[in-house]
């Protein structure tokens, strides 16, 4: 069994690094390091030394220029002190079989970096974006998400439905064009959909679908299934008392089961 070495990257406005690392630890990660972006540019930490990469939620650059936009440009242009491009490290990390999880602002960063949905294996080409919620507002509320059983995503294997909090202002998927969108659907790159808690069916109804995302998209995967980006926060449901109904006896599966799947995949397949 492989050792799971998790890297949680923070800095420049990311703010969910501690609970993301805690969720990784609870999920069985053997080693979990929280590092700043600057630790990577300083050359102190290299991505290829890890096999599970988490881009946590937060407000990279305060969402200025659009969520994740400035962060994506930083990743694209930044080099280490020795002149190595960071993007090259990221590419190597992924090609070596690593898993990448982007949560909320991390998901926004992944689509803006072009790591999702990567149709035709075109990684690092932006094909969709995440933009303003239909309501025009930031909102914090719990939603129910349904797992697409046909998606190749390794993070959602064996899961059916989850309750998770969303906390974002820019969560609506906008594709480059209709063809792109159709292929995302037909190639099952939709990993998670907002669902009506009563029926478990994907929904476009507010507030069960909190941002008006088409096809109720809450999370996307890539063709390999090794990258997941999602707007809801699995790491924020790390304890039964996180659930808003825990005192009413509502104790569904914890959100960190998404991370448990990632750890299991790495242990079994590497």
């Amino acid at each position: 069994m492989a050792r799971v070495r998790t890297l949680v990257i923070t800095g420049y406005g990311t703010n969910c690094e501690a609970e993301s690392a805690h969720a990784a630890n609870l999920s069985g990660s053997d080693q979990t390091d929280i590092v700043y972006f600057s630790d990577i540019t300083a050359g102190r930490v290299r991505l290829p030394g890890y096999n599970f990469l988490i881009f946590p939620g937060g407000f990279l650059d305060g969402d200025d220029l659009g969520a994740g936009q400035a962060g994506a440009i930083r990743w694209k242009y930044a080099k280490t002190a020795e002149g190595e491009a960071l993007l090259g490290q990221l590419r190597t990390f992924f090609e070596d079989g690593g898993l990448i999880l982007g949560i909320c602002n991390g998901f926004q960063l992944l689509v803006k970096l072009g790591l999702l949905p990567a149709l035709d294996g075109k990684y690092f080409e932006r094909q969709v974006t995440l933009s303003n919620n239909d309501s025009g507002r930031f909102e914090d509320r719990w939603v129910t998400v349904r797992v697409n059983q046909a998606s190749p995503c390794v993070f959602t294997k064996g899961l059916d439905q989850l309750d998770l909090p969303v906390r974002h202002g820019e969560g609506m998927i906008i594709p480059e064009d209709n063809a792109t969108f159709s292929r995302i659907v037909t190639e099952n790159l939709i990993a998670l959909q907002y669902a009506d808690p009563a029926t478990g069916k994907p929904t476009m109804e507010y507030p069960a679908n909190p941002n008006g995302s088409p096809m109720a998209i809450a999370g996307l995967t890539d063709p390999s299934g090794r990258i997941l980006g999602l707007m809801p926060h699995p790491e924020a449901f790390n304890h039964p008392t996180n659930h808003p109904g825990w005192m009413r006896g509502e104790t569904p599966k914890l959100g960190i089961s998404i991370l448990e799947n990632a750890v299991r995949h790495l242990k079994e397949n590497a």
């Binding site: 501690a18 939620g57 507002r137 930031f138 909102e139 914090d140 509320r141 906390r167 790491e235 304890h239």
Partner: peptide, 9 residues
């Protein structure tokens, strides 16, 4: 609801 009341998990 416009305030994030559960970041930090």
């Amino acid at each position: 609801r416009q305030y994030d009341h559960e970041v930090k998990g």
